[in-house]
């Protein structure tokens, strides 16, 4: 049986549903030495900012039960260096490029979207989990009014495919998802990392210098799955699902919960071949279960 793996995320067409999550894959260069990047549906690149950032000093990682908390602090070469040095490399592979953007202010988000509007990227992923400098450092994505404003204004700044990455650290993700859809986003990606903390009991200090960070890995998978399912029942635009996916069984769970495509993140660290193994596993599952197109799995829960 021939399996059709192609998915259409409302204008962003992927040859298969397996992508890699922003912040876990750099710009693909390092992993390109362990697998053929052209096997991936898309790469969401390391979170970009307007200017280059060195990221956080001190300890940036705490390993936790089946997960890790990171506090990298958006270390990246800046959007201009990305366009100049990384897009040509990524373009030499058969994959879609998702540019993940991060701002201190709504103006910065818009400026980046305008710059990328003229760049050779296939989608812009708006990370609304960044601290809002003008609002006491509270994340943009936690305040419905701010979400409405940032998505609306970024939407007007670019005609590119626009994906908005949702934070799980909110009271009601469904409300946020509805706003993002209404403001014209083409697609949603979820979930971002879950806020978490680890403490060194002998130093009696938090392991991470900044206190808390973002928890990722299999530990958050059940949370992510539930939120993907909630959002699936709330909006009509497609979902790129992620959060602790390490095996093809995990990936299929997300598809059944309502995701149209999935992203592999932290699993890359422990298994650089994870995306390829997951893709092969999805194909085996399709044959076994009689799905001819991967799109049929999305939301196919009894």
């Amino acid at each position: 049986m021939k399996t059709n793996l192609c998915v259409d995320l409302n204008g962003l067409v992927l040859k298969n549903p397996v992508t890699t999550a922003s912040g876990t894959y750099g710009f693909g260069r390092e992993y390109g030495e362990y697998l053929d990047l052209s096997l991936l549906g898309a790469i969401s690149v390391k979170g970009l900012t307007l200017e280059p950032r060195e990221g956080n000093e001190g300890v940036r990682i705490a390993e936790t039960p089946m997960g890790m908390i990171n506090s990298v602090g958006l270390q990246n070469p800046g959007v201009h260096a990305f366009i100049e040095h990384e897009i040509p490399f990524l373009r030499s592979h058969d994959l879609k490029i998702i540019a993940n953007i991060n701002g201190n202010t709504i103006e910065e988000y818009c400026e980046m979207a305008q710059i990328l509007d003229h760049a050779d990227v296939d989608s812009i992923e708006l990370n609304i989990s960044c601290p809002n400098v003008k609002n006491g450092g509270l994340a943009f994505g936690t305040n419905p009014k701010v979400v409405q404003e940032v998505v609306s204004r970024v939407r007007k700044s670019t005609s590119k495919h626009l994906m908005v990455k949702l934070s799980p650290n909110v009271t009601d993700i469904k409300e946020i998802a509805r706003i993002v859809e209404a403001e014209g986003a083409d697609c949603l990606s979820l979930i971002n990392t879950v806020s978490g903390m680890a403490i060194d009991i002998y130093k009696r200090r938090t392991v991470l210098k900044r206190g808390s960070g973002g928890l990722s890995g299999p530990a958050i998978k059940p949370i992510a799955l539930k939120l993907v399912n909630d959002v699936y029942h709330t909006v009509k635009i497609p979902i790129l699902g992620m959060g602790g996916i390490a095996t093809h069984e995990d990936a299929v769970e997300f598809l059944l919960a309502g995701a149209s495509a999935i992203a592999v993140g932290t699993a890359n660290f422990s298994n650089p071949k994870a995306p390829v193994e997951i893709l092969e596993g999805i194909q085996r599952y399709m044959v076994q279960m009689g799905y001819s197109s991967v799109t049929q799995i999305t939301g196919d829960l009894k």
């Binding site: 912040g23 876990t24 894959y25 750099g26 390092e30 992993y31 030495e33 362990y34 390391k46 990221g55 000093e57 300890v59 940036r60 990682i61 390993e63 890790m68 990171n70 990298v72 270390q75 932290t266 890359n268 660290f269 650089p272």
Partner: peptide, 16 residues
């Protein structure tokens, strides 16, 4: 330093 990916992608291990 504590590491994750070990190949330079995840940026959790740094040296100033």
């Amino acid at each position: 330093e504590k590491m994750a990916c070990g190949i330079g992608a995840c940026l959790v291990c740094t040296c100033k």
